[in-house]
Structure formats: structure tokens, C-alpha cells
């Protein structure tokens, strides 16, 4: 059947004021307004959200899973970024 598929959208929901929007899933819609409306019906039927973001999936540029080791390795070798790296003498408090 001849069929042009609606674009795919990624859906992000803020579950309550004070929290980040979080990715919850995806859906198809012809435009951004329909994507928001559908996201409301699909992902917030039980008061799961107070705000919705939709982003067309092909606008998401992601890091390559196969390169995750080399991409994140620099963080592993810098223990001095963590407070546990430092010795605080006994008797020192509030630090």
C-alpha cells in the first residue's frame, strides 16, 4: 500500500515542577502539535507530567556506542576530580 509514514518524534516529560524533562519514548505524528497532543494521550494518562517536549528523532545526534570506551576513558583516569581523592586531617570538620 502506498503510504508515507509520519515522522518519528522523541518525547520528553517533566513529571513535576523542579525536575528535568526526561526521555520517555517515541511516537509518530505529522507535525509538532500533533506530536504534543499524542504524547499527552500516550504518556500522561495518569498524571505523569506537567510539561512535554517533542523532538523529531532525526534531529538527535548521538554518540557512537562502539566508541564509548575511548570517549569516556578520560574521566576514569582523573580520580582527583572526586573529593575522596583528598585526605582531610582528623579534627577538621565542615569540609
Amino acid at each position: 500500500m502506498a503510504n508515507q509514514e509520519w515522522p518519528l518524534w522523541e518525547v520528553f516529560i517533566r513529571s513535576k515542577q523542579g525536575l528535568n524533562h526526561k526521555h520517555v519514548g517515541s511516537l509518530r505524528a505529522s507535525d509538532e502539535q500533533m506530536a504534543v497532543d499524542n504524547a499527552r494521550d500516550v504518556y500522561t494518562r495518569r498524571s505523569e507530567g506537567v510539561s512535554i517536549w517533542v523532538v523529531e528523532s532525526n534531529n538527535v545526534f548521538a554518540s557512537e556506542p562502539a566508541q564509548a570506551d575511548s570517549l569516556f576513558e578520560p574521566a576514569d583516569s582523573k580520580a582527583y576530580r572526586h573529593p575522596m581523592f583528598y585526605d582531610v586531617p582528623d579534627g577538621i570538620s565542615h569540609m
Partner: peptide, 20 residues
């Protein structure tokens, strides 16, 4: 359901493209 809804899906897409 899929066949009967085809014109709706096409119309929504045509509308979205026109608006763009």
C-alpha cells in the same frame, strides 16, 4: 482500519507540509 484511515494520514501530512 488501516485502509479507511489512509486518507486521514495523508491529509494530515499534506497539511503539515503546506504549513512548513
Amino acid at each position: 482500519a488501516k485502509e479507511d484511515g489512509l486518507w486521514v494520514r495523508e491529509a494530515a501530512m499534506a497539511y503539515a507540509e503546506k504549513r512548513k
